[in-house]
């Protein structure tokens, strides 16, 4: 079986190791990965900033690049939500593109959603010693309604203790240009998030979106916190590799 990977612009440019982990984890499940090299971005940054024409041009290109791909896997709830939900808004006056967007949206899955809902593997037979706390990224949780899927994947890792933080479902304060336009508000939200994460005493802070992770990691480094930020794909990669080497 093969999937097409939309790796997202942020993973491609800032967190390439997350993309590699996605390929590794899927590979261990017997899934091959295709990567259309023409891909760039889904258009969300411009759309969120109000630059609708720019967003539409880039989104249209996304639809061309991924035309016919099935299924499409994305290691980001936010980019998946952009395609699945917000393209409906972006193309609301263009029935033809709307139809195309809808069709692609139906074939596109966030990484953990794909593993659990499509592959039906909520337990990857993985193991890793340590403790982790999970930040529920906003768009994955509230745009896509993906809640238990990443939790069950993490919960099934042998040796990994999951510790729930206070306000795990509250935004980390990233919000795209929001973080730059309203730095005081964004930072105050981030500090709450990092305080709550640190209070669990966990070794790792897990998130399912590289953008949220970039924001939280930026804060962790500046504050000098000891918690290790990690993308869920990286954690599953390590834990499945660990298991393989043990067997």
């Amino acid at each position: 079986m093969r999937v097409t990977l939309f790796v997202t612009c942020v993973v491609d440019q800032f967190y390439p190791e997350v993309g590699e982990s996605v390929v590794n984890v899927l590979g261990r499940q017997g899934i091959g990965v295709d990567f259309p090299a023409a891909q760039t971005c889904c258009g969300q940054p411009a759309f969120n900033a109000g630059f609708t024409d720019e967003a539409r041009a880039v989104a249209e290109r996304f639809l061309e690049v991924f035309e016919g791909a099935d299924p499409i896997v994305v290691p980001s709830g936010s980019c998946a939500a952009m395609v699945r939900n917000l393209y409906g808004e972006l193309f609301r006056d263009d029935p033809e593109l709307l139809q195309k967007a809808k069709a692609i949206g139906e074939r596109l899955y966030e990484f953990s959603e794909y593993l659990v809902d499509v592959l039906k593997r909520p337990d990857l037979a993985a193991s890793l010693d340590g403790s982790a706390t999970y930040h529920q990224c906003c768009h994955l949780l509230r745009e896509l309604g993906v809640d238990v899927q990443p939790k069950s994947l993490l919960g099934s890792i042998e040796g990994l203790e999951m510790r729930e933080m206070e306000q795990a479902e509250v935004c980390c304060g990233f919000g795209g240009t929001f973080a730059v336009k309203f730095p005081e508000l964004s930072t105050a939200m981030l500090n709450d998030k990092l305080d709550n994460a640190a209070a669990t005493g966990a070794d790792m802070l897990v998130a399912s979106d590289a953008t949220c992770l970039m924001h939280m990691e930026g804060g962790i480094r500046r504050r000098g916190d000891s918690i290790q930020p990690v993308h869920i794909a990286q954690l599953l990669d390590r834990a499945t590799a660990e298991q393989e080497s043990r067997v």
Partner: peptide, 23 residues
């Protein structure tokens, strides 16, 4: 505004697309 309170990651030397190609 970002770096007032947060570090910012450097863009990777070898993006995912290059790594995927070479693997």
């Amino acid at each position: 505004g970002w770096t007032s309170s947060r570090d910012f990651p450097r863009i990777a030397f070898r993006p995912f697309r290059a790594r995927f190609r070479s693997r």
